[in-house]
Design a protein around this nucleic acid. Structure first.
Length: 251
DNA sequence: GGTCAGCCAGAGACGGAAGC
DNA sequence: GCTTCCGTCTCTGGCTGACC
């Protein structure tokens, strides 16, 4: 134990509840230079030295009680408690320490209460903030879901348009090839037999084969073109349908 | 049973005295 | 000047009796 020098003696009985100060010392006149001490079995002398209060809160005088010196407020407290008065007479230093400790305990407890109240206030603030943030999160999540839907729809439309463009290119290519072929055929029909036989010698060798070669591919290419045109129309119709449904959705 | 007030013990901070 | 020792003060947790 660190405070062995203090030499505190544990009291035989503890926890004396304070008597009402007003009822006990209310009749005492502290302006009087010779205040009367409370009736106590071990009471000895009380020496007053005015104008020497330590905290000087309520009265500006001090009193030598046994070996120690007490301020007015301290004296009030001592006189309010018979046991403390006894201690003050027998061991003034201990009485002084008890009083100081009592005050310190009160301060400590007050600080603790303030701290607790501060924490409670913080909890309330944080709870309010959490509620606000939760509401914001809900709104943002809703916005995010809407944008995701919109994004996938746009991607789908882009894909469809790309496919349509490919079909258009293929159709274009096929039509160009067909035009070319028709031009050649027209030239053959309107031109002289020499030039045509010279242009396509293998055809004259085998007319059946020629016929077969020149009639089958045009039919196939026309079918192909027809097919491409149908696909293209279907795509367009499909896209128009989507666009309409989108505009319907937006409306 | 909960709250309040008081006491005690332990720990840390601080200042003064003594020794080097 | 620095270190160590000692006494004092203050804070704080735990405990307890009184009171409502």
């Amino acid at each position: 134990m660190k405070r062995s020098a203090g030499g505190e003696i544990a009291p035989t009985t503890r926890h004396y509840r304070s008597v009402s100060m007003d009822s006990f010392i209310g009749k005492l006149n502290f302006g009087n230079e010779s205040p009367k001490l409370p009736p106590s079995p071990g009471q000895r002398t009380g020496l007053v030295s005015p104008g020497n209060g330590i905290d000087g809160s309520s009265s500006a005088f001090s009193l030598e009680f046994g070996n120690g010196e007490f301020s007015g407020p301290e004296l009030k407290k001592i006189m309010a408690n018979e046991k403390l008065a006894e201690i003050a007479l027998s061991d003034p230093k201990r009485a002084k320490r008890i009083l100081a400790n009592r005050q310190s305990a009160a301060r400590s407890k007050e600080r603790k209460m303030r701290y607790i109240s501060e924490l409670e206030h913080k909890v309330q603030t944080l709870q309010t903030e959490a509620t606000t943030l939760s509401a914001q999160l809900t709104l943002l999540q809703r916005d995010s879901a809407g944008l995701t839907n919109q994004n996938s729809e746009l991607k789908f439309r882009l894909q469809s348009m790309e496919q349509q463009a490919k079909l258009r290119d293929a159709l274009n290519e096929a039509l160009t090839a067909e035009v070319q072929r028709l031009k050649l055929a027209t030239a053959e029909l309107s031109g002289d037999s020499h030039s045509s036989s010279c242009l396509i010698p293998q055809h004259s060798v085998n007319p059946l084969m020629f016929q077969h070669q020149h009639q089958q591919p045009p039919a196939a290419s026309q079918q192909n073109i027809h097919h491409l045109q149908q696909q293209h129309q279907q795509q367009q119709q499909h896209q128009n349908g989507n666009a309409n449904s989108n505009s319907d959705l937006k409306q």
